[in-house]
Computed example of a mutant assay.
Amino acid sequence: MSTITADQAEKIKEIVCEILEIDEAELTEESLFADDHGADSLRSIEILAALEKEFGLVIDQAELSRMVNLKGVYDVVQDAAAAR
């Protein structure tokens, strides 16, 4: 099973913050994208697409339901990397 590195985790956080248009200090692993940061479903799809492009992964859109916070995104990227 693949685990994400600290560098990958930092890049994921950068991507999420850029798409959500928030400062990195505002985003915690548990803060919810929709409830805490006002993200809509389109933002979630943008995050998914950016992660696929950055890491060369294929992520099923069904995984969007897990991508509600930064921890969920880390888990989805880790699972997608392990499935390659």
Rank of each mutant, 00 (worst) to 15 (best):
I47S: 03
A25V: 14
E14P: 00
D36Q: 09
E18D: 08
E10T: 08
I59M: 10
E46A: 10
R66F: 03
N69D: 05
K11D: 11
A25D: 15
I47L: 02
V16Q: 03
A62M: 10
N69H: 00
D60Y: 03
F33L: 13
L70E: 13
I22W: 09
I22N: 08
L27Y: 06
A34W: 07
I59G: 08
E63P: 05
E10I: 05
G56M: 10
D36P: 08
L51I: 00
I12R: 12
E10H: 11
L57N: 04
F55N: 04
F33T: 09
E26A: 15
L70V: 08
E63N: 15
R43G: 00
L27G: 06
I19P: 01
A62S: 14
K53C: 07
K13M: 04
V68T: 12
E26Y: 12
V16D: 01
E46F: 06
D60V: 01
E52A: 06
K13G: 02
V68L: 11
R43Y: 12
E29I: 06
L64M: 14
V58P: 00
V68R: 13
L48D: 00
H37Y: 11
G56D: 11
A50W: 06
I47M: 00
I19L: 02
D40G: 06
L32P: 03
A50K: 07
E46I: 00
L57A: 06
E18M: 06
A49L: 14
D35H: 10
N69Q: 00
E29R: 12
E10P: 00
E52D: 07
G56W: 12
I12D: 08
A49Y: 10
E52F: 05
E18N: 13
S65T: 06
S65K: 06
E14T: 11
G56Q: 11
E21G: 10
S31V: 12
I22V: 15
N69R: 01
A34N: 09
V58S: 14
E14C: 04
S44E: 05
A39K: 01
C17T: 10
D23W: 05
C17M: 11
R66W: 02
E52M: 02
H37N: 07
L70I: 10
S44Q: 11
V68I: 07
E46L: 09
S31C: 13
I47E: 01
E30I: 05
S31R: 15
M67V: 13
G56P: 04
E10N: 09
V16F: 02
T28L: 09
I19Q: 03
L27E: 08
D60H: 04
E46D: 13
I47Y: 01
E29F: 05
L32G: 02
S44K: 14
L64R: 13
